[in-house]
């Protein structure tokens, strides 16, 4: 039958150290190199795009301007309103960093999304958690913020026994967890999906004579790669828009 040997998952996501071997805190492997790439690329797009501001944008400036416009109109204005415009740089940085990390999933020869390891999604989710809580504390005051989060108005008095613990868990515990897990699991699932079909294609190839069914997994692999490009964009967008919603919610008390 098929010579299918699916590699264990640790082979797909754990990479050997390249630099600073043995020094586990500062060891650099493929995933960390991906983080460096994402940092440099997202900085480079903005620096190159803003270097020479032509009236009619072209090339990199086009990408930079349309992405700023996208974050401004599609993310900030839809969720936070005009007073959230100060958050455009933060959200834009977040969007590009996640996007470049994700898009490494389909770059031929690299094919390892940085967000398929829990470290970076968890760090970003905790950062967002810190940011929206600090914003709430500053904009509404500690008492006002906790009151608007834990005791939402318009609830019958007796129901607060039920509502307050739920609100506490959903705002302070579930939000960062689900933000991190959503990004991480989507990227890991996509990575495993691509590996599965690549292994299947390779197994089909090794059979040789049965070339009749060979095109099918390859076709699915190509379609899935296109799908994963979409997922990479979508996850960056969702992470950004949820950040905007959380910060916007912390800025205005619910009424």
């Amino acid at each position: 039958m098929l010579a299918l040997e699916f590699p264990p998952i640790s082979h797909l996501v754990e990479w050997p150290d390249i630099l600073f071997k043995g020094n586990s805190l500062f060891a650099i492997n493929k995933v960390v190199l991906g983080f460096f790439f994402a940092t440099i690329a997202s900085a480079a797009i903005m620096l190159l795009g803003g270097r020479k501001q032509a009236l009619v944008p072209s090339g990199v400036q086009n990408i930079a301007e349309s992405s700023v416009d996208f974050i401004r109109t599609q993310v900030v204005m839809q969720t936070m309103g005009p007073e959230g415009l100060a958050w455009v740089p933060f959200l834009l940085t977040l969007f590009f960093f996640i996007l470049f990390n994700n898009i490494l999933e389909v770059i031929p020869g690299w094919q390892m999304p940085g967000n398929a390891r829990m470290a970076m999604p968890l760090f970003m989710a905790l950062l967002v958690w810190l940011v929206f809580n600090v914003v709430g504390f500053i904009k509404q005051g500690p008492v006002g913020y906790l009151k608007s989060v834990l005791f939402p108005p318009g609830v019958p008095l007796a129901l607060y026994i039920l509502v307050t613990p739920i609100e506490f868990v959903s705002t302070f515990l579930v939000r960062p967890f689900s933000l991190a897990v959503r990004l991480f699991a989507n990227m890991l699932a996509g990575h495993i999906l691509l590996v599965t079909f690549a292994v299947l294609s390779a197994a089909m190839w090794s059979i040789g004579p049965s070339l009749v069914i060979l095109p099918l997994p390859v076709l699915v692999l190509i379609l899935l790669t296109a799908f994963e490009v979409m997922v990479a964009f979508l996850q960056a967008y969702i992470f950004t828009i949820l950040t905007a919603v959380y910060i916007g919610g912390a800025m205005h008390p619910e009424h």
């Binding site: 689900s178 897990v181 699991a185």
Partner: peptide, 20 residues
């Protein structure tokens, strides 16, 4: 569309936790 993506993100989280 914006609200739809938000809703998808919240709904999808359950399936992803199952995947993890």
């Amino acid at each position: 569309r914006t609200t739809m993506f938000l809703g998808i993100a919240f709904t999808e989280a359950l399936a992803l936790i199952g995947f993890v």
